[in-house]
C-alpha cells in the first residue's frame, strides 16, 4: 500500500454510508426487540412463573449455544420451505432478536439475582404493588448491576450484524465484497474499518462511560 487513492475513497464513501445506515437500522431494531424479549424471559425466570420459566430456559440455552449464522440460514433458507417466507430485513431482525434476547435475558437475570430479597419485602411493606416494586425498587438497582453485561451484549450484537449479507442485505460487508472486484483492496478495507469504528466505537464509549458513572454511584448499602 504505497499510497492511498483518495478519489476512490471519496467516490465510494456514499456506498458505505448507505450500508452503514442499514446496519444501524437493523442493529437498533434487533437490539431493542432483544432487550424487550430478554426482559420478559428474565422476569419469567426470576419469578419462576410456571411453564414460562421452562420455556424461557429452553429458549435461552438454545439461542446462546448456537451461532447466529446457523440460526439465520435456518430462518432464511429452511423455514420458507415449510411455508414461512421472510423478507431479508425481517429475517435479519428476527434472527438478531432471537440471538440477543437470550443474552439480554441472562444479563437482566444476573441483575435481578443480585437484588436482596429484603428489598422486595421492604417495598411491599410500605404498600407498593408488585409492579411498582419492580418499577421503582428492583429495576433501577438491577439495571445498574446488569449494565456491564448489557453493554457487552449490545456491542456483541452490533458486531454480529456483519453476517447479514448472507440473507441478501446490502450491508457493509456486502458493499466491501462487491467493491473488491474493482481492485483497491487497501482502500476498501480502510473504508470498511472506518465504517465499523464509526458505528461501534461511540456506542462502546457511551456504555463504558455509563458503566463508570453507575459504579461510582455505588449503591452498596
Amino acid at each position: 500500500m504505497d499510497f492511498i487513492d483518495w478519489d476512490f475513497i471519496v467516490s465510494r464513501a456514499p456506498l458505505f454510508w448507505a450500508a452503514a445506515k442499514l446496519t444501524v437500522k437493523l442493529a437498533v431494531g434487533g437490539i431493542l426487540l432483544a432487550a424487550a424479549l430478554g426482559f420478559l424471559c428474565a422476569v419469567a425466570r426470576f419469578y419462576r412463573i410456571p411453564v414460562f420459566n421452562q420455556i424461557a430456559y429452553f429458549y435461552i440455552e438454545l439461542a446462546r449455544n448456537t451461532p447466529l449464522m446457523v440460526q439465520l440460514f435456518f430462518l432464511y433458507f429452511g423455514l420458507p420451505r415449510l411455508g414461512l417466507v421472510w423478507e431479508g430485513q425481517t429475517c435479519a431482525i428476527v434472527g438478531l432478536t432471537f440471538l440477543g434476547g437470550a443474552y439480554m435475558a441472562e444479563a437482566f437475570r444476573g441483575g435481578l439475582a443480585a437484588i436482596n430479597r429484603n428489598q422486595v419485602e421492604s417495598a411491599l411493606s410500605i404498600g407498593l404493588s408488585r409492579i411498582q416494586t419492580l418499577r421503582y425498587v428492583i429495576a433501577p438497582q438491577a439495571l445498574a448491576v446488569a449494565w456491564p453485561a448489557i453493554s457487552a451484549t449490545v456491542i456483541f450484537l452490533m458486531k454480529e450484524t456483519s453476517v447479514f449479507s448472507i440473507v441478501a442485505l446490502p450491508d457493509l460487508m456486502y458493499v466491501a465484497k462487491d467493491l473488491l472486484k474493482e481492485g483497491h483492496s487497501g482502500e476498501t478495507n480502510l473504508l470498511l474499518i472506518l465504517s465499523y469504528l464509526t458505528i461501534i466505537l461511540p456506542v462502546s464509549l457511551f456504555f463504558g462511560r455509563m458503566e463508570r458513572r453507575l459504579r461510582f454511584a455505588g449503591f452498596g448499602s
Partner: peptide
Amino acid sequence: FQNYELFPHLTALDNVLLGLIRVQ
C-alpha cells in the same frame, strides 16, 4: 426490619417520599 432495608439507589428523602407519592 432488622437490616434497615433502605432503597440504596434513592436518597434518604426519596426513600421517604416513595410511598407517599407512589402509594398514597
